[in-house]
């Protein structure tokens, strides 16, 4: 769910929409804290990883190698892909927890 919605939203909106999507979905579906983090993390992180991997493969990794050299002084694309997964995943994960937590606050009140 998060994956699908965020992928569509990111085609049109700035990257940080991933936080909004993860938050909203978790707010709506109210998973527990741990599950919320996991679904936010995987929902966003996997989309980022797969799309990045697709670009990497389609372009023979030319820019991936140069960026890995620039950011990490390493020619390995794996690290760059991993960091991409992590950054997207962490934002998604935290937003997911925040979303479900907020929902629980509202549910308790009502």
């Amino acid at each position: 769910m998060i994956a699908l919605l965020s992928a569509i939203a990111q085609l049109f909106l700035p990257w940080w929409v991933i936080a909004v999507v993860a938050f909203t979905v978790c707010f709506w579906r109210k998973p527990s804290g741990g599950r919320a983090f996991l679904s936010g993390f995987l929902g966003i992180g996997l989309v980022w990883l797969l799309y990045a991997l697709l670009i990497h493969l389609r372009t023979d990794g030319l820019l991936t190698a140069r960026m890995a050299e620039l950011l990490f002084k390493s020619s390995s694309p794996a690290l760059l892909l991993l960091v991409t997964l992590l950054i997207g995943g962490l934002v998604g994960g935290f937003a997911g927890v925040a979303g479900s937590g907020m929902r629980q606050v509202f549910s308790t009140n009502s």
């Binding site: 990111q10 085609l11 700035p14 990257w15 940080w16 980022w48 799309y51 990045a52 670009i55 990497h56 389609r58 372009t59 030319l62 820019l63 991936t64 960026m67 960091v83 991409t84 950054i87 997207g88 934002v91």
Partner: peptide, 26 residues
């Protein structure tokens, strides 16, 4: 992750495959 820190780029924006450097790969 959305802003520049000195000479360190905005990592969220830069690494997003939808918006960041990945989009410049040809």
């Amino acid at each position: 992750l959305n802003r520049q820190w000195g000479s360190v780029p905005a990592f969220g924006r830069l690494l997003s495959p939808f918006e960041g450097f990945w989009q410049n790969a040809e």
